[in-house]
Simulated scan of single mutants.
Amino acid sequence: MKKPYSAPDINREEKLKAFDRLLTVMNELRENCPWDKKQTLESLRHLTIEETYELSDAILEGDLTEVKKELGDLMLHNVFYARIASEQNKFDIADVLNSICDKLIERHPHIYSDVIANDEATVKANWEKIKLKSGNKSVLEGVPKSLPALVKAIRIQDKARGVGFDWEKKEQVWEKVEEEMQEFKQEFNAAANETINKEKAMAEFGDLLFSLVNYARFIDIDPEEALERTNKKFIKRFQYLETESAKDGKKMGEMTLDEMDEYWNRAKKL
């Protein structure tokens, strides 16, 4: 068994005190604040999702001050859920923390046992194999059903890759993209005027998107992040169009496309 690496942690005592302080504040709020006393696992759920997206925004913006703030919000939610569960005699925060520690130790046998794993792919493969041994009937069981479709596609492909179900070369993946593009074009011919079969076109478009996500993974691009950056870029340029056209006394909805393109092209140069 390998000896786990232990980095020096000169602030361990301060970190433990800070966590203990959070537990104390949580207990005080739960017992004395009318709003906190009313919360349930279900009522907190949508707030947690919102906080997770706010953390994602802060990370994409590279704003570490906001990242720290949003991590604090999520830490509060974790403690809040555990406090509610402890009131129902189900589990408490110690159970939560010990559970994740046990899982990490079990799924990192290359650190805590004698298994050899010298690269990321082997680590991921071992992880998925251990999950199957632990009772999971499918490698894909761990993909949440409520994930947004694009993120879900990434996770599905990543998990399939972990057990060896994957293309060998990126060229093969790109050929698949081109194949799916051709199949989509057959269902939706942009140059033709006939009515398309929407169900078939949607199915082919889904296949095309899935293959593009796959190719992005092969060239180490996060498609979710890539699309979000494009969203932000569009928003910035569109808002420039709105602001600058208003300065010139023009109104959105009354301008021609050529007029709007003028502002849009200016925005692209900023």
Results as ranks from 00 to 15, higher is better:
Ala192Ser: 15
Ala7Trp: 12
Leu257Arg: 03
Met252Ser: 10
Glu31Asn: 01
Leu64Gly: 02
Trp127Lys: 02
Lys37Glu: 10
Lys103Gly: 09
Ile116His: 06
Asp220Val: 09
His46Ser: 13
Phe184Asp: 00
Thr65Trp: 04
Leu44Trp: 08
Tyr215Asn: 03
Asn126Ile: 09
Leu23Ser: 04
Met75Thr: 15
Pro223Asn: 08
Lys17Ile: 11
Ala153Asn: 04
Ile235Thr: 06
Asp158Thr: 09
Lys250Cys: 15
Ser146Ile: 07
Glu183Cys: 07
Gly162Val: 01
Lys37Met: 14
Pro34Cys: 09
Asp63Ser: 12
Ala190Lys: 14
Leu257Trp: 04
Thr122Ser: 12
Lys69Arg: 15
Ala85Leu: 15
Glu194Val: 05
Gly249Asn: 03
Ser211Phe: 11
Glu204Leu: 12
Val96Trp: 13
Ile49Gly: 04
Lys269Met: 14
Asn265Phe: 05
Cys101His: 10
Ala7Asn: 03
Asp222Ser: 02
Asp63Pro: 12
Gly142Val: 01
Ala267Lys: 07
Ser86Leu: 06
Ile130Gln: 05
Val139Ile: 01
Glu54Thr: 04
Arg107Tyr: 10
Lys68Asp: 15
Thr122Arg: 07
Lys145Ala: 06
Ser6Asp: 00
Leu104Trp: 02
Asn11Ser: 13
Lys129Ser: 04
Gly135Asp: 08
Ala121Gly: 00
Gly62Phe: 11
Asn89Ser: 11
Phe188Thr: 07
Val115Arg: 07
Leu41Ile: 07
Gly62Gln: 06
Gln88Gly: 02
Ile49Phe: 08
Trp35Val: 14
Ala191Ile: 15
Lys145Met: 04
Asn27Ala: 13
Asp95Glu: 10
Glu28Arg: 06
Glu128Ser: 14
Glu50Asp: 11
Ala121Met: 03
Pro4Lys: 02
Gly142Glu: 09
Arg155His: 06
Thr195Cys: 05
Thr195Ala: 11
His110Ser: 05
Glu194Leu: 07
Ala121Glu: 15
Glu171Asn: 11
Asn118Pro: 00
Gly62Lys: 13
Glu180Lys: 15
Trp167Pro: 00
Ile59Cys: 03
Asp73Gln: 12
Ile84Ser: 06
Lys159Gly: 00
Val143Ser: 03
Ala246Ser: 05
Lys38Gly: 01
Leu140Phe: 02
Trp174Lys: 11
Leu16Asn: 15
Tyr112Ser: 07
Gln157Asn: 08
Leu71Gly: 05
Ala192Met: 08
Lys69His: 10
Lys145Gln: 06
Glu228Val: 07
Lys131Met: 12
Met26Val: 13
Val25Pro: 00
Lys269Leu: 14
Trp127Tyr: 14
Ala216Ser: 09
Phe184Trp: 14
Arg266Gln: 15
Asp166Thr: 06
Gln157Ile: 03
Glu42Phe: 03
Val173Gln: 05
Thr230Ser: 13
Asn27Glu: 06
Asn265Ala: 08
Ile221Leu: 11
Leu104Pro: 00
Ile235Arg: 10
Ser134Gln: 12
Asp36Tyr: 07
Asn89Leu: 12
Thr256Tyr: 05
Lys15Pro: 02
Tyr263Cys: 12
Glu225Met: 06
Leu104Gly: 05
Lys131Thr: 08
Gly206Asp: 14
Thr195Asp: 13
Asp166Met: 08
Trp127Pro: 00
Phe184Tyr: 13
Glu254Ile: 11
Val139Lys: 00
Ser86Asn: 04
Val177Trp: 12
Met260Asp: 07
Glu87His: 05
